[in-house]
Design a protein around this nucleic acid. Structure first.
Length: 716
DNA sequence: AGCACGCCGACT
DNA sequence: GTCGGCGTGCTC
């Protein structure tokens, strides 16, 4: 009896393929196993997701599986279900998502390799060879290269047809061989060793408040929780929860934003509760990744620890997922496959029917709303010792640094203290601001700040593409003119050097701290007191291992609000909150904010330590505009290397959107100005709908057959 | 995603 | 006349 296998392949296609299972492979062919299959003119690693006795009805003969790569299922049924649900949620191809989570060494593919023959060498020396043929043949020399490598490196147009022609003439040999896929390594980790204070003493009250989570561990079933409170208490709770899960013989997946921060945690957990904690992140070497995968697959990992990529750790028998520092933006993966590990953890928890615990001192409104609706929010801690926060106005002043700020800097320097100054450097977007009243032009429809396009001298909305000519006078007060604003680190550095001659002022930004070596040096110098004032950007804000200071200042954080993004306000508030940890809680510390708009809710409420009012305001804004969590918002990006291909695809998408988008508001297309990769043309649509259902019914059809590069960013 | 097939402009 | 550009379509 012949058996037929349904196989998922690593292709951007929302479909599967069928193969026959040769009798000798039948025992090994199980759901979840990897299979090497012939596909068109190549060979690919796929995953068996179904087996049938009946032949699927096709009017062509099926090909047979060539090899089964695993004796036991490589993926469990629940892992398959989870990745399928995640791919549906993020509109990505299941096969592509599933196989991209896998270490490259587990994937086999055939590759075409090109080699020059003797005749090819002679031909290259002769006059009859064309210039491009010569280039290719000379480049090849005696070595063999893959055709994709040649395409990337040589940049000869029509390379494929040249190869074909030379092959026919007998000048080249084209070979195919099956081998492991080599994947490009991601950037080196930014190393830092966070010395985390682990306070394991949980008081009775705290134990009582997490009782529901412990009950959920026993009862099973999906149940989301949000722990709102200081890090020290959260850590204690996690430790208890991990132990409770282990007592029930369940495994734990623990997500934490920074790779650098995970290592000390891992060590502490291993030491203090005697558990094997397996690290899992994308910056491990291929070998390490492979080892982690194998040990997790063998069930040797009771706790897996890592950043967003650890969401896809192949753990079985899961009992609990923890997402710490829930508000951290690094949970979002912006490149394909686009996903948000926070939401991914939610989906995995639903599939596995287990509790998911989010933790944050200041949560995102998205998670807060979701958990309030379907789970439980547990708040604790008084908010900890808060430094005194002082806001100084810099409105309508020409000086880069406000007087009271300079005075404070001087005072702390005289006390022998070392100072951190954070610059909300612009450079994400160009924007205009009124020099007199501080008015920032916003889109009347989307309420996000308009982006200034210098070339056309127009203000453009990044979401809906509404355009306005650059006004001569401020439309709000009629007096001032609109100009760009926002001093960068360099300007601030210069100013400080001028004001405080004899003091050491250093800059920590992508220029001076571009490599981890440079970062380490700067940090070491600061720690050793060799730097009096360190001026940094968000790059510094993300460093976790600075010894606490007694004074820090943030310059004009309102520039963050000019980002053309509905999350700009939240991001600014979270940024300000994050910096608190640089301050010494033991001593009398000062946190100073210089702003043109001290009255802005984000700044004003932060200074007052009034997170609740800020969160309420943020939710009100989201609700008013239909942004998440009050509505669904999806960004659809199309990119290609010619303007023509992009505009053709964009027209097609637009006509489809117009034809069948009941209940979905469509904004755009607008051009993506900050196309990071040079020479790439990008267009963006924004889709808004009250809930996912509308979008789910419409979007797959719209994306069908769009052959250029596309990216779907699902918010909320 | 690859990779081949197939149809129109500038050149050995 | 061919070469070689890239649109279009298919892969079990």
């Amino acid at each position: 009896m012949t058996v037929y296998a349904e196989i998922l392949l690593p292709l951007p296609l929302n479909r599967t393929f069928y193969y026959t299972v040769p009798p000798d492979l039948a025992p090994a062919a199980v759901v979840g196993a990897r299979a090497l299959v012939p596909f068109h003119r190549r060979r690919l690693t796929g995953i068996i997701i179904g087996l049938k006795d009946e032949e699927p009805t096709f009017d062509f003969d099926l090909k047979g599986i060539e090899r089964i790569l695993d004796e036991k299922p490589f993926f469990s049924v629940s892992y398959l279900a989870f990745t399928k649900a995640a791919s549906r949620y993020y509109f990505s191809a299941w096969g592509e998502l599933l196989l991209s989570a896998l270490p490259a060494s587990f994937i086999f593919e055939s590759r075409t390799r090109v080699r020059r023959t003797e005749r090819g060498a002679e031909y290259a020396a002769s006059d009859s060879a064309g210039p491009r043929e010569k280039d290719l043949l000379l480049f090849l020399g005696e070595k063999t290269y893959s055709s994709t490598y040649l395409k990337r490196t040589l940049k000869i147009s029509g390379l494929v047809s040249i190869i074909n022609r030379l092959e026919k003439k007998g000048c080249l040999e084209v070979l195919t061989e099956v081998g492991k896929v080599k994947r490009r390594r991601t950037a080196a980790p930014s190393p830092s060793s966070l010395q985390m204070e682990m306070d394991y003493s949980l008081d009775e009250g705290l134990l009582q408040s997490i009782r529901p989570i412990v009950d959920s561990l026993s009862a099973g079933g999906f149940q989301p929780y949000l722990l709102r409170g200081p890090a020290a208490e959260r850590e204690g709770i996690y430790r208890v929860l991990i132990q409770e899960a282990r007592r029930r013989n369940k495994n734990v997946l623990f997500l934490s934003p920074e790779i650098a921060a995970t290592e000390p945690w891992r060590e502490a957990l291993e030491k203090k509760i005697g558990l094997t904690v397996v690290p899992f992140h994308s910056r491990m070497t291929e070998k390490e990744r492979e080892l982690s995968w194998r040990s997790i697959r063998r069930g040797e990992a009771p706790v897996v620890f890592g950043p967003r990529s650890a969401l896809f750790a192949p753990l079985d028998n899961l009992g609990l997922i923890v997402v710490d520092e829930e508000a951290d933006e690094s949970y979002m993966q912006w490149e394909n496959p686009v996903f948000d590990a926070r939401r991914g953890a939610w989906i995995r928890g639903q599939v596995e029917r287990i509790p998911v615990v989010y933790g944050a001192h200041v949560p995102t409104v998205e998670t807060l709303a979701l958990v309030e609706e379907e789970g439980r929010v547990i708040s604790f801690g008084s908010g900890g010792v808060r430094p005194s926060v002082q806001v100084v106005s810099s409105r309508s002043r020409k000086e880069i640094l406000a007087r009271p700020l300079i005075t404070a800097v001087r005072r702390f320097l005289e006390q022998g203290e070392h100072i951190l100054i954070f610059v909300g450097k612009r450079g994400f977007a160009s924007y205009l601001i009124c020099s007199a009243c501080g008015f920032v032009p916003r889109c009347p429809k989307c309420r996000i700040s308009l982006t200034y396009h210098k070339g056309i001298r127009r203000l453009v909305c990044h979401y809906c593409n509404i355009q306005q000519p650059q006004p001569d006078r401020c439309p709000s007060c009629g007096k001032g003119d609109l100009r760009g604003r926002g001093a960068g680190t360099e300007v601030v550095e210069e100013e400080l050097k001028r004001l405080f001659p004899g003091r050491t002022v250093e800059r920590f930004d992508s220029d001076t701290a571009g490599t981890s070596g440079k970062q380490k040096t700067l940090i070491r110098h600061f720690e050793r007191g060799k730097i009096d004032i360190l001026v940094g950007t968000r790059l510094l804000a993300h460093q976790v291992n600075l010894a606490p200071v007694t004074f820090l200042a943030v310059l004009n954080p309102e520039v963050m609000l000019t980002l053309p993004d509905f999350q700009a306000g939240q991001r600014a508030f979270l940024y300000l909150s994050r910096l608190i940890r640089f301050l010494d809680g033991e001593k009398k510390s000062l946190y100073m904010i210089q702003s043109d708009f001290p009255e802005l809710p984000v700044i004003d409420r932060f200074a007052a330590g009034d997170t609740e009012t800020y969160l309420a305001g943020e939710r009100e804004f989201r609700e008013l505009m239909g942004y998440p969590p009050s509505g669904q918002m999806i960004e659809l990006l199309l990119s290609g290397d010619t303007p023509r291909s992009v505009s053709a695809a964009s027209r097609l998408v637009l006509s489809r959107l117009k034809a069948e988008t009941e209940g979905v508001e469509v904004l755009g297309p607008s051009f993506v100005s900050r196309a990071r990769i040079a020479g790439l043309h990008k267009v963006q649509f924004v889709l808004k709908a009250p809930d996912r259902q509308e979008i789910d019914t419409v979007l797959p059809g719209i994306l069908e057959g769009i052959s250029i590069r596309k990216k779907v960013i699902v918010h909320g």
